[in-house]
């Protein structure tokens, strides 16, 4: 079978290690049945794989599936055909970002997190929660306040992150990686 060049399917198969195993999907539904987030997904993994096989790429990349994936690998360890499902989810996120086809704010959560890591070298919960929620759900962040207070009173929430000493070195590494990875 020759696949449509540059299709989601073709990219998974050619770019992802073991991605060709997706070809052997039996549509048994074990992945969806095992997924802790399946009920919140507009297409659960099995359905998404059917869409990929059918070439409905736009629907695939606009799906919230991979943004709701918690990367717990439950599907992967149970898949009877040994398809690296979690890795495929990562790959699909990447494809969706590349094509600018994403509708959820999960990407921005990741973005906030990464921004923080690239700025401080370490992450911290308050900055993450605040940065993300103030931007996207100001109302949610109010609701979160009691929890945050509880955490703070137990000394578990820092107000400022610790910046690593050799931030310059880390940035140089990440910049180089972005340069060759692009």
């Amino acid at each position: 079978m020759t696949l449509e060049p540059n299709s989601v399917y073709e990219k998974i198969i050619t770019e992802l290690p073991d991605g060709e195993k997706l070809k052997s999907c039996l549509q048994c539904g074990n992945c969806t049945g095992s997924c802790p987030s399946a009920t919140d997904m507009d297409y659960a993994p099995r359905g998404l794989f059917a869409l990929i096989a059918a070439g409905q790429d736009e629907k695939v990349l606009r799906a919230n599936t991979f943004w709701y994936c918690v990367s717990c690998y439950q599907c992967t360890v149970r898949c009877p055909q040994e398809i690296p499902i979690t890795d495929i989810m990562y790959h699909l996120k990447h494809q969706a970002i590349e094509k600018g086809l994403y509708t959820t704010d999960a990407k921005d959560f990741s973005g906030t997190f990464i921004g923080m890591v690239e700025h401080f070298g370490r992450s911290f919960e308050l900055g993450l929660a605040a940065g993300f929620h103030l931007l996207h759900h100001p109302l949610e962040s109010v609701k979160m306040a009691p929890m945050a207070l509880g955490m703070m009173s137990r000394g578990r929430l820092k107000l400022l992150p610790k910046r690593i000493k050799n931030m310059g070195q880390l940035r140089a590494i990440l910049d180089k990686a972005k340069e060759i990875g692009a």
């Binding site: 539904g29 074990n30 969806t32 049945g33 997924c35 009920t39 297409y43 659960a44 099995r46 359905g47």
Partner: peptide
């Protein structure tokens, strides 16, 4: 727990 694949629901 299973996916009922014919209706696409867990």
């Amino acid at each position: 727990t299973a996916e009922d694949t014919l209706i696409g629901e867990q």
